[in-house]
Design a protein around this nucleic acid. Structure first.
Lengths: 115, 115
DNA sequence: TCCAAATATTCGCTATATCGAATATAATAA
DNA sequence: TTATTATATTCGATATAGCGAATATTTGGA
């Protein structure tokens, strides 16, 4: 049997609604943790955990700017490839999987959300 | 937060080495359960369980021919889309994710393996 | 009808994922 | 240095996935 554990691990890292939401935001542009926290409505520790999963899977990269840590997609084509797979694999999915425009999130303290 | 639970469920159904192996075989041509069991080296009940996951996710369809049940991809483009995602998402993946030619498996009783 | 083979299902156990809460760490400013 | 804010980590509890074993179901043939 051909071993597809590496590919399965990649898919497992993708297989969570919150992580997909994070990737959807990052597909637009890089974002800091507090922004992702505000957008998703999840707790900060939870987002940090999900980001760790994504980072260890090699899907995102991060850079620190002062006290903020910005995350970005490791490969900008990721969301496009995901949208294609969802379109092919899933009749019930939003079709096509859409991108979300960046917009300031109330309550998010990051510079991109400060008016 | 945009709800991506449907997409996450699809990815979760894909996120297992044995299920990927099944899909890899089915990408070539339809196959019966006993063939998939022989190819993967897993137990019959286990393969049947994985096939149930794939079927309920809408990824495969089945047809009965006598005592045999043949499974096929619901969408023939699935493997191609998966290969693209793996290439984009994962530097460590086999690149590109290859297809496997059909070949008779010793010990498989299905007609396609009988010489 | 009875049996054998292919496939599906159920059950119980173990492993893993997820999450909240609490805490730790890092960077900047006072 | 101390305080504050953003982020990361750890821990414990709960939920879910995965698997083997046993059993049920389906089909065709004797």
């Amino acid at each position: 049997m051909l071993c597809l554990t590496t590919e399965a691990a990649l898919l497992k890292a993708l297989a969570h609604p919150t992580r997909l939401c994070i990737l959807q935001v990052l597909a637009q542009e890089e974002a800091c943790v507090c922004h992702l926290t505000a957008v998703t409505g999840q707790r900060q520790a939870n987002i940090s955990q999900h980001l760790t999963v994504l980072r260890e899977a090699g899907l995102v990269q991060d850079r620190r700017d002062g006290v903020l840590v910005y995350y970005r997609l490791a490969d900008p084509r990721l969301w496009e490839a995901l949208a294609l797979l969802c379109e092919v694999g899933c009749a019930a999915c939003e079709r096509p999987l859409r991108s979300v425009p960046h917009s300031p999130v109330p309550g998010c303290p990051c510079p991109k959300c400060k008016v």
